[in-house]
């Protein structure tokens, strides 16, 4: 019994990290159609902010989360203003531009913060482990899971129940017609981009105590995030939630029965097969081409 619980918890922990990283990407792509290859760098910058605030100013990780969200969101806002807004409806150019931004960000961090690996101290209150139905799990991993679910709920509620969300859904269906009804789509896009970037920064800060912090760390996360979004269906928030759950549990289980190398390969093969037969992803909405 405790083995089953431990395995489910491990899978959930993997899923929560995938969800955190993919959520921002899914929002940005779903609303604006921009494939943001610099997403991994937002994650990396979030982790570096956590490291900087902790090592230079002595802030604990929990206290700095809100600040990190705002900082990275502001950065996303600026990038949208300076670069992205000129490139809407030019998918190839946005891919190239965001990729270039990502490379530049990596090198700027390498030049200013240095290339050595960094680490972020776990909050002392969460550094213990918790017993759930006979299985032990790290309190911090459970905390990350809770935050990921909380952020997902918040995003979903904004999307579903606020007037801003209503406007977003209208723009997603047809930007031109929504604009003709007086919706300020440029502002909505900018806020969406900033919000997606902020969530990515938060993801980076939250995973930094578990992983190592380095200028290249974003690259692996952006690949994972794309897997989640493509599998879940690109315009579906629920799809992102479901596919990160499926991918997390599957790779946790496969890694337990074989090893992480084989798990990674099998999960990728499974995604290739699914995309072959269901190119729109698992949870594609029926509207809009």
């Amino acid at each position: 019994m405790d083995f089953v619980v431990a395995q489910i918890l491990t899978g959930l922990s993997l899923s929560s990290i995938l969800l955190l990283v993919a959520l921002g990407l899914a929002i940005i792509y779903g609303v604006t159609g921009v494939i943001n290859l610099a997403h991994g760098e937002f994650v990396m910058l979030g982790a570096y902010c956590a490291w900087l605030l902790q090592s230079q100013f002595g802030w604990s990780l929990l206290a700095s989360l809100a600040v990190i969200f705002l900082l990275i969101a502001a950065l996303g806002w600026l990038i949208e203003l300076a670069v992205i807004r000129h490139l809407y409806d030019r998918p190839l150019d946005t891919i190239l531009a965001t990729w270039g931004l990502g490379v530049m960000t990596q090198q700027i961090v390498r030049l200013t913060a240095g290339g050595e690996l960094r680490y972020v101290q776990m909050p002392p209150s969460l550094s213990g482990s918790v017993n759930i139905l006979g299985a032990t799990d790290s309190a911090y991993r459970l905390f990350v899971l809770a935050v990921a679910l909380g952020l997902f709920l918040l995003t979903w509620c904004i999307y579903r129940y606020t007037s801003f969300g209503l406007k977003l859904r209208a723009i997603t269906q047809n930007r031109a017609i929504a604009s003709s009804f007086g919706i300020n789509s440029a502002r909505a896009y900018r806020l969406t981009f900033a919000y997606g970037a902020g969530i990515a920064g938060l993801a980076g800060a939250l995973i930094s105590p578990l992983k190592s912090v380095s200028p290249e760390m974003g690259t692996t996360y952006v690949v994972d995030a794309f897997m989640v979004v493509v599998l879940g269906g690109v315009q579906s928030l629920v799809g992102t939630l479901a596919s990160s759950a499926v991918l997390g549990e599957a790779s946790g289980l496969l890694a337990y029965y074989s090893n992480d190398t084989i798990a990674k390969a099998l999960v990728l093969i499974a995604i290739v097969i699914i995309i072959r037969f269901r190119p729109q992803g698992l949870f594609a909405p029926r509207v809009r081409a």
């Binding site: 992983k211 190592s212 337990y256 992480d260 190398t261 798990a263």
Partner: peptide, 12 residues
């Protein structure tokens, strides 16, 4: 057991 180079998720 061997994990891929650069692997960073050791919960399993």
């Amino acid at each position: 057991e061997y994990v891929p180079l650069g692997h960073s998720e050791f919960s399993s």
